[in-house]
């Protein structure tokens, strides 16, 4: 469903960040992108979501070239992104944010169901603004809920485990399993978390702006563990 063809991007000081990325993401599969800090993972996400324009290469979504489209147009085509560090909005309630994500009015049951998926109780959060009064973990869960509310085709999650505790991580894995069963969406995650990597259908390893490994967890994880000089983290990020 998503095809990246020879994507190249350099920082303003001309330092290459992505050096000719070719990648295919399929529907109904969970693909996890991993690699060391600075390897270009978040830049790749921004390019797919339209937050950055590629300097060369093409991005195809279900065969349609979306490279020239801006972030709004790509979102309207079904590209959804959960940011690693969600931004707060003064005065914008969680309920309103979910409605904006859904693109339509939601009834109480729908809002409740969305928040339940990320472990939040609607009654407790319905009137709360999505601002700095939420903890980092709460804000992260709301961020994930906005993506679940979208009628999207391609779901991008940038380190969804960051800020979540172990219980929430288990819930998050359930969400990904459910989405995978629907088989009509593609999912691409950035993660270093062992349980998410193990749950993946495919792992892509990025280093120095290039894909240096790609395959099922059984093949990729042993080499990642060796490079990490020990087991990969299994919990969430800081609470």
């Amino acid at each position: 469903m998503l095809n990246l063809q020879n994507i190249y991007w350099a920082a303003p000081d001309n330092t290459p960040v992505l050096r000719g990325i070719n990648l295919a993401i399929k529907k109904g599969r969970l693909t996890v992108l991993t690699g060391p800090n600075g390897s270009g993972k978040t830049t790749l996400f921004k390019l797919v979501a339209g937050l950055l324009p590629p300097q060369s290469g093409r991005i195809l979504l279900d065969g349609e070239d979306i490279t020239p489209l801006d972030v709004t147009q790509r979102a309207q085509k079904g590209v959804c992104l959960a940011f690693q560090q969600p931004v707060g909005f003064k005065g914008l309630t969680i309920g309103r944010l979910l409605e904006l994500a859904a693109g339509e009015a939601l009834d109480e049951g729908q809002r409740c169901a969305l928040l339940s998926q990320v472990g939040l109780a609607w009654e407790e959060y319905k009137d709360r603004p999505a601002d700095g009064s939420l903890s980092g973990g709460e804000r992260k869960r709301v961020e994930i809920a906005t993506v679940l509310a979208r009628p999207g085709r391609l779901l991008l999650f940038d380190e969804p485990e960051a800020g979540l505790d172990l219980w929430s991580l288990a819930g998050l894995l359930d969400v990904f399993h459910t989405l995978r069963e629907c088989r009509d969406k593609g999912m691409l995650l950035i993660s270093h978390q062992a349980r998410l990597l193990e749950a993946a259908d495919e792992i892509i390893v990025l280093a120095g702006g290039r894909i240096v490994g790609q395959g099922p967890p059984a093949r990729i994880l042993p080499s990642l563990t060796a490079e990490n000089h020990g087991p990969l983290p299994r919990g969430g990020g800081e609470a």
Partner: peptide, 23 residues
């Protein structure tokens, strides 16, 4: 963030301003 939800730049600004004034 709001543009990744499908809002245009102008719509995103309107939502942010509306929330800000009603906070």
């Amino acid at each position: 963030k709001l543009r990744t939800l499908g809002l245009t730049q102008a719509q995103a600004e309107e939502e942010i301003i509306k929330g800000f004034l009603s906070a």
